[in-house]
Every structure is written in structure tokens, then in C-alpha cells.
Write a protein that binds this DNA or RNA. Structure first.
Lengths: 207, 207
DNA sequence: CATTTTTTGTATCATTCATTACAAAAATTT
DNA sequence: AAATTTTTGTAATGAATGATACAAAAAATG
């Protein structure tokens, strides 16, 4: 029963690139240029490989895109959610969530890219097969992590028993996209960030 | 001083199509397929003209896209904002805003397209010249209409004197995109609509 | 009616696109 | 060392792309 891959050395010429590293480069290109805007040449250049290697490894462009989404969802581990969960209390958790969105998801090298899922993937949900269910799964997964955080806060007495976790999780998730839209439109980061404390109040406060 | 266009009949063969009608058809194609996803053939087919007419009238693809954005912003008159302004009081105004977003912006014929600006235009803000300032103008314009609505509500006593109009306008505008993301990802419209009353409370309530 | 001006439709341009043949290269196996 | 297997790089594929050249068509002007 040795299904493990690295069990025995593989036959034939070894790959000259790391499959995951190349995939991450592809994510960045799709992120920056969109699905249709990213050409195979753009992708292979960024990935450091030639087209035959791309097709042999990941399939065609659509398959590669799906692989990118799955990889992003599976291993990039959304940093705003991480920040939310690792904060010392629920107040700073909510703040950290929004802060990370602004300073990580927006400040990637060349400008404001926003969230990969909501700024790139969603735009081809209608045209690229198999994207919609992945997006739904991502939403559900994210919200469940937020709900779990609220529930933990209830247990330690930071939130009232009747705090509507699910509703606030959706609110928090929805609220997340507004700032991204603004920054992508060229509004200064500091300007958008001014509302950060206010968002925290909206999510946690109110009754 | 007769600068008017229709003052005298124009020389040469008359255009066989209405410039604005064709432009609206182009908007719909860009909306549905994105900037890069929409080909000249897609556009000319939908507009009912041939490529030479397109280039002679609107310039190249990028110019046409800019013209589409300007036309959309200038004359399509965002129906959610209209609904907000025409409601009998501020409560139903806010509800009507979100309701219209869900049932008009999302139910366009073939599926959930979301807002043209936030689902299509924003994705090429980095790649297509001149898009960013248009987006910023759109945001500012929309928020000012919301603020104006809140201020009117203050005058007739529907809102307290210290109601933070600008902040709530931004909140309302930001909140608007969450549902669009969900619907575009395939979540049922009714499911998303359940939060409608809650959003109203968030915008108007809270202190 | 001939001239002028503009639009139309056809047909075509060079590029770029996604995708693949193919032979050389680099590894393991016999 | 020969055979086998897989990857690599070059080069090419047909199709689609954005953009035009050009002549016929349709209007006003002289």
C-alpha cells in the first residue's frame, strides 16, 4: 500500500519547475489581467515554462484556471481570515480582518488587485465551466470561519448569547468588498481606511 | 451662433443606425462578456453594424469601451438610486435601493450580471486607460445622491439631526456589492434577499 | 445631372491567440 | 551501454483577433 508519490524515483526526464510555484505565478497573472486578458504567453512567461509543459502539466487554459482557483482556495489561506482568527479578542479580530484586507489584498506589488475571488474569478463565473460551485464553496467556507470565530467569542463571554453570528458573518463578508472596489478605482488607501473603525462597530455593535 | 447639430441636414449618406441605441447594445455585450471577452464581432453583431461603421463612429475598442462607460453613467440612470430617491420615506427608500439591486441589476435576461461598473468596468481599471477616473466619479456621484437623500430625510424629521449621512452613504454603497457577488456565484436570489430588511436596519439603525 | 461627401458592405490585412508536432535532452531501467 | 520514458525547447498549426482598403451606395450641393 504505497501510494505515496515520492516513494520511488520517477522514470524519464525530471520536471525543471515546481508545479505549485508555477501555479502561484499563474494565479498572479490571472489575478492581474483577468481570465480572458491573460494570454498563454503571459502565463508561460510568468511561470518560467514553455507552452508544451503547461499543457502537459495542467491541461488547457480553462483547466489551468480551475487549478488556480483550487490552489488559491486550498493553500493560500486567506490572510484576512487568519488575522481574524488569531487576534486576542473579537474586537481586534474584526478590525484585523478589515485591516488585512486593505493592507495585504490591496497592496500586492503593482497596485490594488482586490480579492482574487471577488475581483477576478467572479467575472467569468458565467463563461468558464465549473467556476460557480467553487465560488459558492469559497463563500460558505469563509462565512463558516467567521461564524466559528463569533461562536468562540460567545463562549468566553465577549459576545452576548443572542448575537446573530450567521447574519453578522454575512454582513462582514459582504462589507469586505466595498473597500476593494474603492481602492481599485484609485481612491487612496488612507481615505478608505478611515472607515475601518466604523465597520467594526457596524459588525459588532447595533443592538 | 448656430452650433446645434440638427440645424441643417448633414451632407453625405446618412447613418443607418442610432448611435445611442448601438452604444447600449455594446454596453450589454461588455457587461456580459467583459472587456477582453467581448470581441469586435460580438459587438458589431449585437449593435447591428459592421466593423468599419464601428471604427468610424466610436474609434477603436478602447474608445468604444470608454464611450460605453460614459453613456452608462450619463443616461442609464442607475435604477437603484432612482428607486431610493422616489420612495415615500427614507425607510422604504433604503429598502427599495437594495430590492432594486437584487431584482433589476441581477435579473437581466440571461442571468446575474451585477452592476456594470462593479462587475465589469472595475476589472480593467488597471489595463484600460482612462477607466479609473470614471469609476471614481461614479462612486462619488452615487454617494452624493445617497447623502442628498439622507439630508432631505433630516429636513422632514425622518432622521435625527446628527445622522452621519456621508458615512452611511458609503456603508450603503459598499454593502450593495455583497449580494451581487453572491448572486453571481449562483446563490439563489431568494436566499440573498432574506437579508434585505437586515441591511435596511444596518444603514438606518445603530444608535 | 454631375460633383461632393459620408456611410455602407465586402473582403482583407497583419497579429495574436490557444494548441500541438517533433526532435533533442535528461533521467531511470534492463 | 542500449532501451525506455518523460520533459524540454523550437517551431508551426489553424483559427480568431483588432483594425482597414476599397468600391458601391445614398444623401446634399452646385
Amino acid at each position: 500500500m504505497n501510494d505515496t508519490k515520492n516513494d520511488s524515483k520517477k522514470l524519464g526526464r525530471p520536471k525543471s519547475f515546481n508545479e505549485e510555484v508555477a501555479l502561484e505565478a499563474a494565479v498572479e497573472i490571472f489575478w492581474r489581467k483577468g481570465y480572458h486578458g491573460a494570454s498563454i504567453k503571459d502565463l508561460t512567461s510568468a511561470m518560467g515554462i514553455h507552452s508544451p509543459s503547461l499543457y502537459a502539466t495542467y491541461g488547457d487554459k480553462e483547466s489551468l484556471f480551475i487549478r488556480c482557483i483550487e490552489h488559491y482556495m486550498g493553500s493560500v489561506s486567506c490572510s484576512p481570515l487568519d488575522a481574524f482568527e488569531n487576534a486576542k479578542d473579537i474586537q481586534s479580530g474584526v478590525s484585523a480582518f478589515f485591516e488585512t484586507i486593505l493592507h495585504h489584498a490591496c497592496e500586492e506589488q503593482n497596485g490594488a488587485l482586490g480579492c482574487f475571488l471577488s475581483s477576478c474569478v467572479v467575472t467569468c463565473a458565467d463563461t468558464v465551466e465549473g467556476v460557480k460551485p467553487l465560488l459558492q464553496a469559497a463563500i460558505e467556507y469563509s462565512e463558516q470561519r467567521l461564524v466559528a470565530g463569533f461562536e468562540r467569542a460567545k463562549l468566553v463571554g465577549e459576545l452576548a448569547e443572542d448575537f446573530p453570528s450567521a447574519q453578522r458573518a454575512r454582513l462582514m463578508f459582504d462589507l469586505r468588498q466595498g473597500p476593494l472596489f474603492r481602492v481599485r478605482s484609485g481612491v487612496a488607501l488612507e481615505e478608505v481606511g478611515k472607515d475601518l473603525v466604523y465597520w467594526q462597530g457596524v459588525v459588532l455593535g447595533h443592538e
